[in-house]
Design a protein around this nucleic acid. Structure first.
Lengths: 140, 140
DNA sequence: TATGATTATCTCAGATTCAAGATAATTTAA
DNA sequence: TTAAATTATCTTGAATCTGAGATAATCATA
């Protein structure tokens, strides 16, 4: 009976992503944001005005969670809801000035932080890693 | 102002691991188990009797969550708690016959499932992927 | 135009997680 | 031996997420 641990690439991939996730969580927590909250702000910062649904599709959480996280960020004054004049089912979300200012401050540090986690790879290695991961991702 | 998306290896790595995580969650849900519950059973199946603490260290969840998940699995008759005679603070956990039988049934399918997600890589590519991921992981 | 299907958002209950603190047992060291 | 520190587990409360269902608006089509 074989009860040994499974697939090595699988194990190392999941360990690595989990470790990265943890480190980013801690980093973002310094700004009193959870990863979900940060992800919402990041989408808005990069793409500008978005509907709640669009944001949810980007960061892959349920509609119930979207309402919850948008509520929190709105109460904190980082974003605002606006009715869509063309379709009254839809709500547009945009960053407030405070939200933009916060992201102006956070994002450069965040990018630097992410880059630092990968700077042990040279550009060939980065390319190879991306290629192999995509091969896996597209099959999953 | 650069608001473009960050580091490509980072993005692809996180996307891939998230996709895998989701697929495994769905697969395991077929047996009415969550990933945390399955992970506990997997540790016990591979290693035999373990203390609650040892299991928690393996799967990296808090002691409060350990109590909760062990409770659930115990009520379901898949594992049992046993006092440690040498140290009365410690509780040993083992799979019941039902727990072993369930894992005997689940694990082969699970391994096959995991393998199938990586079978687009040949063994050279697997080796390269592991090497690069370890390089990242050890730096994180 | 009326009806049925779809879509976007929200509400609510339940599940899961963690952090902090409680409890009880063991170890260390004065 | 005894007090302090450490350790293992459990309890509790708060936070976050999901899924199912509610509501309201829009679309498609006969």
């Amino acid at each position: 009976m074989n009860r040994k641990c499974s697939n090595l690439p699988f194990l190392v991939l999941m360990q690595t992503s989990k470790a990265i996730h943890e480190r980013i969580k801690d980093e973002i927590a310094k700004n009193n944001l959870g990863i979900t909250e940060f992800s919402v702000l990041e989408v808005l910062y990069q793409k500008g005005k978005q509907t709640i649904q669009q944001i949810g599709n980007c960061i892959l959480i349920s509609s119930g969670s979207m309402t919850y996280v948008i509520d929190k960020l709105e109460k904190r004054g980082l974003l605002c809801r606006n009715a869509c004049p063309d379709d009254r089912r839809v709500i547009h979300v945009t960053l407030t000035d405070a939200g933009n200012a916060l992201m102006d401050e956070i994002m450069p540090k965040y990018h630097e932080f992410v880059n630092s986690m990968f700077d042990s790879l040279n550009s060939d290695e980065e390319e190879t890693l991306v290629r192999l991961l995509k091969k896996v991702r597209d099959k999953v």
